[in-house]
């Protein structure tokens, strides 16, 4: 982890979001630095998904503001949102893949919409699918894949544009414990390559053992923001670590794009 140049990639300042009289979120303040892995924990209805939606600007705060790289919620134009999305990978509990497209096409879509060239797309998607272990299923359609495989495709799609940030909303919510572990491992792998990950989950037991920063959310408020204890590759902390430790799996493949000057500060890629 390049701890030397620490900078804030997600900043949430005095954010509130209300629906009528009901406050989904109230006075939220948090910052996520580059390369950080943060768990956002809380029971259902605590406001985790709402907070993530506000970060990827599918929704906007009632008061306060969200800053993601160069994008500021209070100054955001609708036409700019797509460019923010290209810098932020997003993963959901229900995968959100397009059923009538192959695994390859699903991942390629994220690059296609940026106007990337076919050869670049082919190279990059092939590479990513190999890394998430689904290259052999590239021509399959999502409905024939297992839940874990679908989530891997979703993660591959989320990192296809080498985002600085990965948002994961209950990514393991639909998966059994064994698959959950493998998905967590994959997210750690993405993080180890330099991408900041913010993962929402209701499963406190799942995340407690990693010694990572955990933000507890209850009834729309942050009740606790536990500092990071563990510094290093999180895959070491996975229980029952039969997982092959290949720390350099993603080496030379800078997901954050920092190395190639594709950092989040850069303006939208036209």
């Amino acid at each position: 982890m390049k701890a030397a140049e620490k900078r804030i990639v997600i900043g949430v300042y005095h954010l509130s979001r209300s629906f009528g009289k009901y406050f989904a979120l109230q006075d939220i303040n948090l910052q996520v630095a580059n390369g950080e892995f943060v768990f956002l924990v809380g029971p259902s209805g605590a406001g985790k998904s709402t907070l993530l939606r506000l970060i990827y600007m599918d929704d906007f705060p009632t008061t306060g503001q969200v800053v993601v790289g160069p994008y500021v919620s209070t100054r955001m134009k609708r036409s700019t949102i797509p460019f923010l999305r290209r810098r932020v990978g997003i993963v959901f509990q229900n995968f959100r893949l397009i059923d009538e497209r192959t695994v390859f096409e699903n991942v390629a879509l994220a690059m296609k919409v940026t106007g990337a060239g076919m050869s670049e797309i082919k190279r990059q998607v092939t590479d990513i699918l190999a890394r998430v272990g689904l290259y052999h299923k590239r021509y399959d359609y999502p409905p024939v894949l297992s839940g874990g495989e679908q989530q891997r495709v979703a993660i591959a799609r989320a990192v296809a544009n080498r985002p600085a940030i990965l948002l994961a909303d209950e990514p393991t919510g639909n998966l059994d414990p064994v698959v959950t572990k493998s998905i967590l491992e994959l997210l750690f792998k993405v993080n180890a390559a330099g991408t900041a990950v913010l993962m929402a989950t209701h499963d406190i037991d799942l995340v407690r053992s990693f010694g990572q920063r955990i933000i507890y959310l209850e009834e729309g408020r942050i009740v606790r923001d536990k500092e990071m204890i563990f510094v290093g590759d999180l895959r070491e902390r996975l229980p029952d670590s039969k997982v092959s430790r290949r720390a350099d799996d993603l080496e030379g493949y800078d997901i954050s794009g920092e190395g190639s000057g594709n950092g989040v500060e850069r303006g939208p890629r036209e």
């Binding site: 797509p82 999305r85 397009i98």
Partner: peptide
């Protein structure tokens, strides 16, 4: 999904 991955309108 297309909106999610940053496709313009």
């Amino acid at each position: 999904v297309m909106k999610l991955v940053g496709a313009t309108n």
